[in-house]
Nucleic acid binder design. Structure first.
Length: 719
DNA sequence: GTAGGGTTAG
């Protein structure tokens, strides 16, 4: 049986982690199965020039640039499933408004007058007029753009957006040198970007260009960064292109900003590497931050091999690795589900004098939790406390969500108290975790109570709050409550996202309304919201179950409106725009919920004709996923294998299995091979596949295993 | 110009 230990990783060295801090017995108490160990012969893959350019034969990953072969995964004797197969959850980019970071005082060129003005502006500045007065009274003493740049940045750091803008306007009017005005504009754009005000950043940029001081590499770079950090990756890339078109040469900061935007915007690794290659071609040498941002691209996609190769490339180029490098690498490896390797990397950190911090621990803990190893995750929390690392907002929320998922609400509430004791107020993330936890346990009274508390505490629900609630109530068959929540969502200004749509689609699917679900899928795509693998998995699963529902033809309820066809074109956008009481009868989603609540949906009987149509539907969906470059994962495969088990003919099943081949020859090979009869070779491949599946969380693993054995059993009965 | 958490599929 193949080992789940990563290559190059020592399993013999037993030197304990951070011996000086750690009594051995503590380690044993906390880690019955797991000792931190430093492994001297561990390396993150090979970094010798002779082997770094070795290309992986055969099944190359999708995202790889031929121009950057050093980033290719190393040859592997062991078959590895793609990260996508592993069914890791998608991580959406959420704009974070954390803005409390003070800029280090190094290299600042402002005068002490600027600091005094800042202090006054904050202390007295209740409004812009006061700021104006302060600025005027110090006008002659403030020395040029450096002082004003300092001021507007610092005002920005304190969240004083309008004051920062006023300060910028004041300064730029009094400045006559174009390059100085340009400096002010770049600083303003960057500050607005940090404040999440991309709209203002863009208008400052445009004004600067109209006035003739905005056509600089700095202003472009600042705007790229503003777009990037706020999740507008496409715009960031467009600005980058327009910058080159206008004859400006991007510098290191520009490239770093655009590469970072790619990471935040979910751009393919291969596409991002093209930017990297372009950068190198143009003689701009990448630095630590370039690599850290590239690593972040890998971390989003769980591309742990690519991340490891990037790390080796840094070693090879002599670029220092800092805590960001390690934490981002750790995250990529954790998201790739390689917890053993992540563990080794964490050990190596201490050895290289890069001390794991609260982020390193949170990353590992989240990795363990997502792998279903909740006890390991909790042990790490204890260890973190033991080494004296305090918990912050993120780690408290991570811990809370673990307890909530486990249904250990006493402990979860204990964490809430501890949080508040440390002066951290419960935020939307905290409440969402509680709502999700209670929802999963079917404690709907608690769900209502917590949601009420959330409002009473003035914590604004976000889209995820609504998705969580709609999902919870729908799964509990409480369609009336789900409808109420959806109505409340519509009343707000929030925009539906892929998660909300997926939750609605899944509800429709679970109630047999697959056609309606497909209608909603079309609509979200039209509305510019990309479905993801989860969305498609719901639909494939529904088709695979051959449960096609339709509305009861009940004369009292207006027969024509209740035909399934009328639900083919659900329009959530329209639904979102219409206010409560305002033509609610035209709101299709609301109507579906209403019908579900009144139990007006019944299931049609399974019939052979329908089944073969559904197989075609599954194939169509699969092709659509392929077109959209959405890679199926283990859940998709399980759903398809389940559909195979329901096929009447071996030919139909083969057709579905053939589709698996499009994406993953290994899964296909094993499924097909086992179906055709076991040879020694197939059995070895199957062993390796099962090993890989075994490292996933237990419910995922057993779902896949059951789906496969069901399919084999189903056809094994036939001659 | 850089890192971690909450959600949807099984």
């Amino acid at each position: 049986m193949a080992s789940s230990a990563p290559p190059h990783c020592s399993i013999t060295s037993t030197k304990s982690y951070q011996n000086d801090h750690y009594p051995q017995n503590h380690l044993q108490n906390q880690h019955p199965n797991h000792h931190w160990r430093s492994s001297h012969n561990f390396s993150l893959g090979s970094s010798s020039p002779a082997t770094r350019n070795a290309a992986k034969p055969g099944n190359a990953p999708l995202s790889r640039s031929p121009n950057f072969s050093s980033l290719s995964p190393l040859p592997s004797s062991k078959t590895e499933l793609g990260a996508d197969f592993r069914g890791r959850r998608s991580t959406r980019f959420v704009s974070k408004m954390y803005f409390g970071r003070q800029k280090a005082a190094t290299g600042s060129r402002h005068t002490s007058v600027a600091e005094e003005v800042l202090e006054r502006a904050i202390r007295f500045g209740g409004d812009e007029q006061t700021l104006e007065t302060v600025l005027r009274s110090f006008e002659t003493k403030l020395s040029g753009s450096d002082d004003y740049t300092f001021l507007l940045r610092e005002l920005g750091n304190r969240g004083e957006c309008s004051k920062a803008v006023r300060c910028f306007e004041f300064a730029v009017q009094r400045e006559h040198k174009r390059n100085e005005q340009g400096k002010l504009a770049s600083a303003m754009i960057s500050t607005l970007g940090r404040l999440g005000r991309v709209d203002l950043a863009k208008s400052v940029f445009e004004t600067a260009n109209t006035e003739g001081y905005g056509n600089t590499v700095y202003a472009f770079s600042a705007l790229i960064s503003a777009y990037g950090r706020n999740g507008f990756c496409q715009q960031a890339i467009e600005v980058f292109e327009s910058m080159k078109a206008s004859g400006l040469k991007p510098n290191l900061v520009t490239y770093n900003a655009v590469i970072d935007a790619c990471g935040k915007g979910g751009v393919d690794f291969s596409r991002t590497v093209e930017l990297f290659d372009e950068m190198v071609r143009n003689g701009v040498q990448p630095d630590r931050i370039t690599f850290n941002s590239l690593l972040a691209v890998c971390s989003r996609g769980g591309l742990w091999e690519e991340a490891r190769n990037l790390f080796n490339e840094m070693v090879y180029r002599g670029i220092d690795r800092d805590i960001f490098t390690y934490n981002t690498l750790l995250d990529a490896v954790c998201k790739g589900g390689k917890m053993d390797l992540a563990f080794e990397i964490m050990s190596e950190m201490s050895e290289k004098n890069v001390c794991p911090n609260v982020v390193s621990y949170s990353t590992m803990i989240d990795g363990y939790a997502k792998a279903g190893k909740l006890e390991e995750a909790l042990n790490l929390f204890n260890e973190m406390k033991f080494v004296g690392i305090g918990l912050d907002r993120v780690s408290y929320n991570t811990l809370l969500s673990i307890y909530a998922k486990l249904g250990r609400f006493e402990e979860a509430l204990g964490i809430c108290r501890e949080m508040e004791g440390s002066g951290i107020k419960k935020d939307a993330v905290t409440y969402n975790a509680l709502l999700g936890g209670y929802g999963k346990q079917g404690k709907y009274d608690k769900v209502k109570e917590v949601f009420e508390e959330m409002k009473a505490e003035n914590v604004t629900p976000n889209v995820l709050t609504y998705s969580t609630l709609i999902d919870a109530y729908s799964k509990g068959g409480m369609h009336k409550d789900a409808m109420d929540i959806f109505r409340e969502f519509k009343q707000g200004k929030l925009k539906a996202d892929v998660v909300l749509y997926s939750a609605l689609i899944d509800t429709l699917c679970k109630n047999g309304l697959v056609e309606s679900a497909v209608g909603l899928l079309d609509e979200m795509t039209r509305g510019g919201i990309q479905p993801n693998v989860v969305t498609y998995n719901s639909i494939i699963d529904a088709f695979g179950r051959s449960a096609t529902g339709q509305f009861q033809e009940d004369a009292d309820d207006g027969v024509n409106e209740l035909q399934p066809e009328s639900l083919m074109h659900l329009d959530l956008e329209e639904a979102v725009e219409c206010k409560v009481g305002d033509k609610e009868e035209n709101n299709q989603v609301m109507r579906v919920f209403g019908q579900l609540a009144d139990e007006k949906v019944r299931y049609s009987k399974e019939d052979t004709k329908r089944k073969s149509q559904e197989i075609l539907c599954i194939l169509g969906i699969f092709q659509k996923m392929h077109q959209l470059k959405i890679k199926p994962n283990v859940v998709t495969f399980s759903a398809i294998l389940n559909a195979c088990s329901r096929c009447n003919s071996f030919e139909d099943a083969s057709m579905l299995l053939e589709e698996l081949r499009l994406f993953d020859n290994q899964v296909y090979g094993v499924a097909h091979g086992l179906l055709m009869g076991c040879s020694e070779k197939i059995w070895l491949q199957a062993q390796s596949l099962f090993d890989e599946v075994k490292s996933m969380d237990s419910s995922t693993a057993s779902a896949f295993y059951n789906a496969l054995t069901d399919m084999l059993w189903h056809f094994g009965q036939r001659p």
